[in-house]
Each structure stands twice: as structure tokens, then as C-alpha cells.
Write a protein that binds this DNA or RNA. Structure first.
Length: 626
RNA sequence: GGGCCUGUAGCUCAGCUUGGAUAGAGUGCUGGACUUCUAAUCCAGUGGUCAAGGGAUCGAAGCCCUUCGGGCCCGCCA
């Protein structure tokens, strides 16, 4: 039993009455009432029929209410028309509460069958392997990871990919640094290798290009060798990339993010994927050879009301977009899979991480999908639009390939100042090349020491090990929640000081509610007894909590259908707020009677289970103590 | 010049897809609640011509049009 059943009962009931009365068919709305005095559920049918029936909305609602009262009802207790014209309903709580609580005990509570086990690919992270992750990357990673978790809950068979651009310009930059710039390929003591590459080598060598033209030429040479993949430089590049990647993945894993497969660009380049895709595009007339104008001799894609996009240069080499096309087609299973797969690592959750290889002694596996979601920030929208169009031509299915875009993370003027940058009161775009960023590891460390102090103050009896565990969980909860709670198309202005706030609408607030509920259950000193009469739960706080618990699957559906991770974040917050109100106003362990205590223990347990599952969707740990 | 996103309380944001009841949170500020199931909490107060103008509608923060402010993208770079 969930709210969905109550809504359905009302929808069907109202529809039957309308049919019987000969009212015209309408798509009316059944939703949660916006205020307590409006009951639990509201229906707007009065407004919709007003014109056709030439009656006031209230009169229609009134008639429907009278008719509805005569019907046999299950989860509905009362029906009444409101002066405004709404048709309102109250729930039959003596039935509703026990059924919701029992339903919430199921292991897969909240699961919906939207995906019907179809194959879904989610690609995220895809950070150039020449630097450490910064908070901008974290937004990508957390959006992608959360979407993957939500889609899994919505019964999609999800594979998560991380695209490793190991043959691009950014990698070439640090290789130049190591080979020709005099930088050691060992990080100084105490510094992670990815930080060293990004903070020092990448930034410094970029500065030097300005004055040293020879260095810039060497870069082109290195880039070419990386793509060909046979030279000594290429082997060295591969080694460096993998060392950086290892360190990046440590940060991802620390954030609770796992993957199924690493796709190396160098192997895509060396496979025949590009030429196959190119031939396909030619034969489908998607791309054409330009005969005149500024792009003469290039293969281009004509776009409506926009500039033509060059796919293949007049010298025959493929451009950046072009490289993405075969990969996108591969993800959708359009082209034959040239890859084999070998173990990369076993992740903390036990999930195996694979990597592509062209070595045919390795295994054949399937990491492709009927649908593909690519998480990249919206600065890539134009290019992604082109790819989306081509994929829909290839697959002749419009939504198979989807670009999930999001706005970037900028640094607040105050935080920019900590990097010795005066932005004149404006926020600033991060840039790895210019060294303008705040790294993910740094944020987690600062947050971690802040939460450690807090946890120690509150739990002086706990040992160091436990405190570290709690503070890490809370720090990650805070960061993940901050990255997910607002809409994808809102810019996040990251402020270091503000990110340390752990109160109000934050991850720790939600985690705290969980910890509180667990303490009640611990102190109760007995297992919840679900045979007890749960209809003793009569206060508004208890009813509200049950209602929120009952809406879990509706929220999952909303989030999955709209690819909107914040929906689940809002839901967790709502659960926590409702529980905290309950906590403050309703006593569990010192209730008026033993049996009431028992009933409330069941509710608290139900809450704990539901919040735990919802937090899992956000990848936020549910701490036992805080 | 073209394309995409955005503008709601001092600040940060929900609500807009699918129009409907008195526009909600957090934070800030003011005041209150810990010998109590953890105060990372709760309660009360404060705070809004929903950027501006127009249109269609019985009804607009939401839909359409125009204008203005802010951000991003538009290379035979990646």
C-alpha cells in the first residue's frame, strides 16, 4: 500500500461517477492536498468541467461529493466539496497506516517498474586523466551516480561508464612537462599524484607555452604519438594516465561512486569504430563533402539555423565531435563491439570494474544499452545536440540517446580570494588549465575535520576510529546533498565557508534524523512488533509521517521519468522534517501506554527503513550515531 | 549576429513539465524550548508589486509575445 493506491481509488471512483452522470471525459488531477484543512487528497475536476457543464466548480464538486459518499470506499474516509471548487478527500487512516507501515518493510520498497529491466547506459565523470577532480567534476559525478541509482530503482538494467580521454591534448600537456619540461614523474612526499599533475605540471607547462614556441610544437608531436599508440612516448603516456586515473578513482570511490566499465579513448581511436560510423553517416547522407566556401574539402554536418559543423578536416583527420560519434553509437549498440573486457578492480561494494581492451584473449561482455544517458555540463550542449540528432537517425528512435546537461559550478568571490584571485565581487568559472579550482579531496578533508570536531563534541565516549567513520560519512553526505539538491540548470556558486554549514536543508540534517530514529529503536530494547494495533497512531504528526513514507514510489517515479535527482533529495528532506516534528511532539518510549509505545516503535522503524532506502538513492550513508 | 539557460523574501533556492485554494523552505535577523527518545533539533516572529510590460483564459509565478538584467555556447582546438 502506498499513496498511489489511494490516488488510484479516487481517480477510478470519480471517473465512474462522471461516466454515470454523463459528464464529458476529462484528464483531471488527483494529488496531495496543499493544506491540512483541505483533507489529504484533492481533485480539480470541478474546474475542468465548469465550462462544459455551465455550472460553478463548487456545484460540480458538491454533486460529485454527494455521489461519492454513496459509493463503497476503502482507503477513502470522507469526501467534501470546498468553496473554491476542489473536491477533497480524507484518508481512512485506520486502514491506511497499518498497510503503509507493512508495505514499507519490504526489501524493495519504493521500487517501480518503469524500466521493465531494459538496458540503460549512464556515462558520467569522464574527467581528463591529467589532474585531480575539482568540485565542478563532483557535480557531474554525483548527478550521474544518483541518476544511475534512481534508474536502477526504477527497474532499469543500468551500466555505468567512465570515459577516459587518454589521448587528448590535456594528457599531452603533462607528458610534455615530464619529458621536456623537467618535471619529475614522482609526486612530492604527501601529495597525491593526480594533484601533483594538475596543480603543478599542467598549470606550469601551460604558462610556458606562451613564451616557448618549441614546447608547443613538441605538444603536437606528443599528441600524434599518443593517438598512434606505438611509440615509447605513447607507452609512457599510458602509464601516466593510468596512475592519474587510479588516484581520481580513489576520490570517486571515497564519494561512494562506483562504475562498471572504463572506456579508453585511445582504444576507440585504434579500433575501426570511427571508419564504420563515418561510412554509415556517408551512406545515410548525414554528412557531406563540402565543395566550396570556407569549409571546402571538409566533411560537414549541415545544421538547421546554425553554422555547419566540420566532422573531417580537409587533411582527412577527424575533429573532436567526430570522435564522440562512434563512441555514442557504440554505447547504443549500433556498431559492432570491437572491444574485449578485462578486470580493472573490485570496488568496495563488491561491484567489479572492467576496462576496455583490444586484446582478444580477454572476455566479451555487454556494457551497451537500448538507452544512453550522457552526463556532461551544458557548455557542451551544442555538440551533444548534434550527436543526439545523429543517434536518433541511426537508431530511428528519438529518445534513445540523451544528453543530461547541467550548469557549471563557479567559485564565490570569497573562495576565489583564497586562491589569491580578486574577481571584483563576481563569481568565477573554474579552470584546470589556469589553476582556478577547489579540489574534491580538499573539500572533503576540510569538511571532514569540521564534522570530526562536531561529532567528538557530541559523542565524547566514542573512540577515534568511530569518530573518523562518522565524520567522513557526514562530510560526504553534506557534499553530495549540496551538489544534488538544486535544479540541474541552476549554477552552483561554491563557497568553501558556506559548504561547512551543517544545519537546515543539508545532508547532515537528514542523516541526523536517521541517527535519532535509530537511537529510539536501540533504547526501546525490543524488536518492533508489527502485530500490534497500528491504528493507535492518531496524532497529526504520526499521520503526516505515514503519508510521507507512503509517497516514496511516487517520488522515485517522478525522479526517474524526469531524470531529476533533486526530487529524491527533496523527498529525503521532507521525510527528515516530518520525522523531526514527530520526534519533538510525540514521545515514543514514554508514551501513555505500552501498546502505544509498541505502535510508535513500528512507525519509527518504518521511517528508518524508508529514509535509509531513500538515502541509498542519493549515495548518502545513514549513520548510526552522530 | 545566432543558439541554450536563468531572473520568486536581505542571501541561497522549491513551486513552472500537467494553470486553480492564503506563493513555500533553508539561511539571516528577533525571541523562546535542553535534569527529557541526541539542541547537527524544534517553536514563534520578521521578510515577497513572483524582473518589467502586454496577450489568450472564468482564473497566471506557471501558457504565448515583447523588453530588460545575469550566465554559457557558436574553431579545419580538445
Amino acid at each position: 500500500m502506498t499513496l498511489r493506491l489511494l490516488f488510484n481509488e479516487i481517480r477510478v471512483g470519480v471517473k465512474q461517477i462522471c461516466d454515470r452522470l454523463g459528464y464529458p471525459e476529462t484528464e483531471f488531477d488527483v494529488s496531495e492536498a496543499s493544506r491540512p484543512e483541505f483533507g489529504d487528497v484533492s481533485c480539480n475536476i470541478g474546474f475542468l468541467l465548469a465550462k462544459a457543464l455551465k455550472k460553478r466548480p463548487f456545484d460540480i464538486a458538491q454533486t460529485l461529493a454527494e455521489e461519492y459518499k454513496k459509493k463503497s470506499k476503502k482507503y477513502v474516509l470522507e469526501v467534501f466539496a470546498h468553496d473554491s471548487g476542489y473536491l477533497n478527500f480524507t484518508a481512512n487512516y485506520s486502514l491506511f497506516i497499518p498497510e503503509v507501515i507493512h508495505a514499507s518493510l519490504l526489501l524493495d520498497y519504493g521500487k517501480i517498474d518503469l524500466g521493465k529491466n531494459s538496458r540503460m547506459v549512464v556515462e558520467h565523470t569522464s574527467v581528463n586523466p591529467n589532474k585531480a577532480l575539482h568540485v565542478g567534476h563532483v557535480r557531474n559525478i554525483i548527478i550521474g551516480d544518483t541518476i544511475a541509482r534512481i534508474l536502477h530503482k526504477a527497474s532499469y538494467d543500468v551500466s555505468v561508464l567512465n570515459y577516459v580521454d587518454d589521448s587528448g591534448l590535456q594528457v599531452a600537456d603533462i607528458i610534455v612537462g615530464f619529458k621536456y619540461g623537467g618535471f619529475s614523474d614522482k609526486a612530492p612526499e604527501g601529495q597525491k599524484f593526480d594533484h601533483y599533475c594538475g596543480d603543478v605540471v599542467y598549470v606550469k607547462i601551460t604558462e610556458r607555452y606562451e613564451t616557448d614556441k618549441h614546447l608547443a610544437e613538441l605538444r603536437s608531436q606528443v599528441l600524434k604519438e599518443l593517438e598512434e599508440g606505438t611509440s615509447e612516448i605513447a607507452k609512457f603516456g599510458d602509464e601516466i594516465t593510468r596512475r592519474v586515473l587510479d588516484e581520481q578513482l580513489k576520490t570517486c570511490w571515497r564519494l561512494g561512486v562506483t562504475y562498471d566499465c572504463l572506456n579508453f579513448e585511445s582504444q576507440i581511436v585504434r579500433s575501426n569504430l570511427w571508419s564504420t560510423a563515418f561510412e554509415k553517416m556517408k551512406s545515410m547522407g548525414i554528412t557531406e563533402l563540402e565543395k566550396e566556401g570556407k569549409n571546402v574539402g571538409c566533411w560537414v554536418i549541415k545544421a538547421e539555423s546554425e553554422e555547419d559543423k566540420v566532422l573531417v578536416r580537409s587533411n582527412g583527420t577527424a575533429t573532436y565531435v567526430a570522435k564522440d560519434i562512434p563512441y555514442a553509437a557504440w554505447k547504443l549498440g549500433i556498431l559492432e563491439d570491437p572491444f574485449y573486457y578485462k578486470h580493472y578492480a573490485v570496488q568496495k561494494t563488491g561491484r567489479v570494474l572492467w576496462q576496455t581492451t583490444l586484446d582478444n584473449k580477454e572476455t566479451k561482455l555487454n556494457f551497451r544499452g537500448d538507452m544512453v544517458i550522457t552526463v556532461i555540463d551544458s557548455r557542451q550542449s551544442r555538440l551533444q545536440k548534434i550527436i543526439t540528432k545523429i543517434m536518433s537517425d541511426f537508431k530511428s528512435k528519438p529518445d534513445a540517446y540523451r544528453h543530461l546537461g547541467y550548469e557549471s559550478v563557479t567559485l564565490s568571490p570569497e573562495t576565489a580570494k583564497t586562491l589569491d584571485l580578486d574577481t571584483g565581487g563576481k563569481s568565477v568559472q573554474m579552470s584546470g588549465r589556469k589553476g582556478i579550482y577547489v579540489s574534491a579531496d580538499y573539500v572533503l578533508d576540510v569538511l571532514g575535520s569540521r564534522t570530526f570536531e562536531e561529532a567528538k563534541k557530541r559523542n565524547p565516549e566514542l573512540d577515534e576510529l568511530n569518530l573518523v567513520k562518522i565524520s567522513e560519512q557526514v562530510a560526504i553526505g553534506a557534499l553530495r546533498y549540496a551538489m544534488i539538491k538544486q535544479d540541474l540548470d541552476k549554477i552552483i556558486t561554491f563557497d568553501l565557508t558556506e559548504s561547512l554549514s551543517l544545519e537546515g536543508d543539508t545532508g547532515p540534517y537528514i542523516q541526523y534524523a536517521y541517527a535519532r530514529s535509530l537511537r529510539i529503536l536501540e533504547k526501546a530494547g525490543r524488536e518492533p512488533n508489527f502485530k500490534i494495533h497500528l491504528d493507535q497512531l492518531e496524532t497529526v504528526y504520526e499521520k503526516n509521517l505515514v503519508k510521507v513514507i507512503a509517497s516514496f514510489d511516487l517520488q522515485v517515479e517522478d525522479a526517474a521519468k524526469n531524470l531529476s535527482p533533486k526530487v529524491v533529495a527533496k523527498y529525503c528532506y521532507q521525510l527528515a522534517v516530518t520525522f523531526n516534528a514527530f520526534y519533538e511532539h510525540v514521545k515514543v518510549l514514554s508514551a501513555e501506554s505500552e501498546s502505544l509505545t509498541d505502535a510508535r516503535i513500528c512507525l519509527v522503524y518504518s521511517f528508518k527503513e524508508t529514509l535509509g532506502k531513500a538515502l541509498q538513492l542519493l549515495g548518502i550513508a545513514a549513520p548510526e550515531r552522530m
